[in-house]
């Protein structure tokens, strides 16, 4: 197989705060092929958004991408590029769609202006050409009367329209990879479906790779072909989407799946995972999930599990891979204070 479009190796993004070093992304490795859609899933605080920002090198101080990290994109290691070279990648070869369409657009410029700016910065050419391209792009993302809309300001558009504008802005330079960070979370359910449909359609038409970041496995099921689950700054499970929904291995993934509303059972109370993500300044030693895990045994509190290969394209960071019989011993998680030392 040819080299993938993106290969991330041992990505570490640490924040050097007054309260200690927050290891928000702590040794993450994954790949994305050309034209592939990959879902990156986890609760808030698991490091998925920081991973996304790290790929574009948008992490601001006190955050820092550690020197061990490799971000091979299109044959270049982005982690080693100068800021100036990196700017040529951002918005052109790799673009981002943010969560909040309300605040992601600048309130004092017209939407056409904001899209055309990307063209002007990366492609040059006349203002008129850039504007024409912006209008064309608005049409592509399904905005009616694009000529008129281009001259309007963000506050004059609805939330769904704004998110279409943000998508148009990301796609205007026909990038190889689009990172979409919770692109539908802030929208109404019906609009969510429309936006997801739009992204899927555009992806097929333009052949763009997508890294879709979300806390919602339902969104992933509809769009992605492969899923990466993050917890505590690490990848805990990775699998093709069907395999994950059929044979989830990691107890955390299991918990996420149980927390998902099922068609036909909507009235039922959703299962939740007890406890919350520990602070990134004090990850538990050994398995980072063990104090919330219903299967945990003594090994989990002492030995940090590696990513076990458990099937084709399926890996899991859980000792159950070696001791599958333990799965029978399901119990209340001991939300003990193990690993809590040093927490504020």
């Amino acid at each position: 197989m040819a080299d993938p479009l993106l290969r991330v190796r041992d990505l570490r993004t640490y924040f050097y705060t007054e309260n200690g070093v927050a290891r928000s992304v702590d040794g993450v490795s994954f790949e994305i092929g050309a034209g592939e859609t990959v879902g990156l899933v986890g609760e808030s605080g698991c490091g998925k958004s920081v991973t996304a920002l790290s790929l574009l090198r948008l992490v601001r101080p006190p955050g820092r991408i550690e020197s061990t990290s490799e971000i091979l994109f299109d044959g270049q290691d982005l982690a080693k590029l100068s800021e100036k070279e990196m700017r040529k990648i951002r918005g052109a070869r790799m673009a981002m769609v943010f969560q909040e369409p309300m605040t992601a657009l600048n309130p004092v410029f017209t939407v056409g202006d904001q899209i055309a700016e990307v063209v002007r910065v990366h492609h040059g050419g006349s203002k008129k050409e850039a504007w024409a391209r912006a209008v064309q792009m608005l049409e592509t993302v399904g905005i009616p009367a694009p000529e008129q809309r281009a001259t309007e300001y963000p506050h004059q558009l609805s939330g769904g329209m704004r998110q279409r504008v943000v998508i148009a802005m990301a796609l205007v330079m026909n990038p190889a990879l689009v990172i979409a960070d919770e692109p539908t979370t802030a929208l109404d359910v019906t609009i969510q479906a429309q936006i997801l449909e739009l992204m899927r359609e555009l992806q097929q038409r333009l052949g763009t790779s997508i890294l879709l970041i979300t806390h919602d496995l339902g969104v992933v099921a509809e769009t992605a072909s492969r899923v990466i689950v993050m917890y505590g700054g690490e990848i805990v499970e990775e699998a093709p989407v069907d395999e994950l929904f059929k044979n989830a291995h990691h107890p955390y993934t299991e918990g996420l799946l149980n927390a998902m509303p099922q068609v036909g059972h909507e009235r039922e109370r959703l299962a939740t995972i007890p406890g919350s993500v520990p602070p990134p300044t004090a990850w538990p030693k050994a398995c980072r999930f063990h104090d919330r895990c219903p299967y945990a045994w003594d090994r989990c509190a002492t030995e940090h599990p590696p990513l076990y290969q458990i099937g084709p394209g399926h890996s899991s960071r859980c000792h159950l891979a070696e001791e599958p019989e333990r799965r029978a011993d399901k119990h209340e998680p001991f939300v003990v204070m193990a690993g809590a030392e040093g927490r504020p």
Binding site: L56, I89, R90, A95, E117, M169
Partner: peptide
Amino acid sequence: DFIRTARAKGLS
């Protein structure tokens, strides 16, 4: 947020 968007667009 829109400043971050501007950075992601590749602006100086």
